[in-house]
Write a protein that binds this DNA or RNA. Structure first.
Length: 404
DNA sequence: CTTAGGG
DNA sequence: CCCTAAG
């Protein structure tokens, strides 16, 4: 795949990623991102600056300090990997993350599941699994010899807010989703409150802030979240569009918001919105629904590292998902097991009734969950009550990973 | 720090 | 999701 001259790769940390990794999916996605960036509603000032910088200081890490945007390049790995690390991608990923943040909140509140169009789910899941199998090859030291991927060059794009939700949408008419997203953002940017006034932007901000606050409480984990396996700093101290951000937030929350809106967990100073709200038992207020894509990522991760290697799964499959701690992942797996178990032992009537209420979990996933469950028993339901037809399990090419 | 388990 | 205990 050729990089157009206008979009130079910022090869700062992505030397290990060669163009081969950018197969068609990423290409399409990049096209979308570029198109997205071309939208007149977005000021490309920052992008242009990045461009210039990218051209001039390519490979010259010593001159990076002159960069006045406070851009911490150490975050590149998150968007690196298959994205080939162009500055545009960085910007785009950033914006997507922002937009997705909006959508996440909106989803929770209004029950709109725009990020995964379930009508086309079956379609895109098939492709998705194929893609993931490619990823599996990568992990297994497949065609690209990334056997011991340094956990940062491997960023399959199945990453939470941005990559994950966009990862497999190539075949889905997801342009509408993006349009919706940008509309949402525009509305929020123009007026301080979103159009339907159900959720003023301040609410979003408050939610993010509080989330960061809560996360902060368990400091061991927070510290952990800032580092990747090699101890490299992974915080995203990236604030080029500060001015644009300013437009959409109250001054009182500005600082916290700016630090939190991307990291959602890593604000150093959260003194502003602390004592008053936290005394409540509002712990579980901000839950993010697991998308189907995330679940599939989780299943893939478990199939690679095995049940119990939650940190490995987090680092390699949910690396840029700022939420989703290893514990979260483990919990989700626990719930998936339960779901698969229930799905197995229930008469169709109850199932239908339940499915009308909850959003459907595709059968494919439950099957894979059961496979994995049978593969490595989880000391969860005492005995291995997930005796799954072992003959079916042999059909998959997935390798069996034995836990120690 | 990580993981398991319970709330 | 959150919290805690144990390795």
């Amino acid at each position: 795949m050729d990089r157009t001259p206008g979009f130079p790769a910022a090869g700062f940390k992505c030397d290990s990623v060669d163009d081969n990794v950018c197969h068609s999916n990423e290409y399409n996605k990049m096209s979308d991102m570029k198109r997205f960036l071309m939208e007149p509603t977005h000021d490309n000032t920052a992008v242009d600056s990045f461009l210039g910088l990218g051209m001039e200081t390519m490979g010259l890490s010593s001159t990076m300090d002159e960069f006045s945007h406070g851009f911490d390049f150490s975050f590149l790995p998150d968007y690196g990997g298959l994205y080939s690390c162009t500055t545009q991608d960085v910007e785009a990923g950033l914006k997507f993350e922002i937009l997705d943040g909006f959508l996440d909140e909106v989803e929770e509140v209004e029950g709109i599941y725009a990020s995964h169009d379930l009508s086309s789910t079956s379609n895109h899941i098939l492709l998705e699994t194929q893609d993931k199998k490619k990823v599996s090859e990568l992990l297994d030291g497949g065609p690209y010899g990334l056997m011991n991927f340094p956990s940062e060059s491997y960023s399959p794009g199945i990453s939470g807010s941005t990559g994950l939700s966009e990862w497999s949408k190539e075949t889905v008419p997801h342009a509408e989703h993006q349009n919706v997203s940008s509309e949402k953002l525009k509305d929020s940017l123009d007026s301080n409150e979103s159009e339907d006034d159900k959720k003023p932007l301040s609410t979003f901000i408050g939610s993010w802030v509080k989330r960061g606050r809560n996360r902060k409480k368990n400091l061991p984990n927070t510290a952990y979240r800032r580092l990747d396996s090699s101890g490299q700093r992974m915080s995203y101290d990236f604030r080029p569009r500060k001015d644009a951000m300013k437009k959409c937030m109250h001054t009182s929350t500005e600082n916290t918001f700016r630090d939190d809106h991307l990291t959602s967990s890593e604000s150093e100073d959260d003194i502003s919105v602390t004592k008053t709200s936290r005394t409540r038992s509002d712990r579980r207020k901000h839950q993010r629904m697991w998308t189907v894509d995330e679940v599939m990522t989780l299943v893939d991760g478990i199939s690679h590292f095995g049940v119990g290697k939650w940190t490995d799964i987090k680092n390699n499959f949910f690396h840029s998902a700022t939420h989703r701690t290893p514990v979260d992942i483990r919990d989700k797996w626990r719930n998936l097991l339960k779901a698969s178990y229930n799905d197995k032992h229930n008469d169709g009537e109850a199932e239908e009734r339940r499915k009308s209420l909850a959003r459907p979990m595709p059968k494919d996933i439950l099957h894979r969950v059961r496979e994995l469950a049978s593969r490595h028993p989880y000391p969860f339901s005492k005995s291995s009550c997930f005796v799954y037809d072992s003959s079916r399990s042999q059909s998959t090419s997935k390798k069996k990973k034995k836990r120690s």
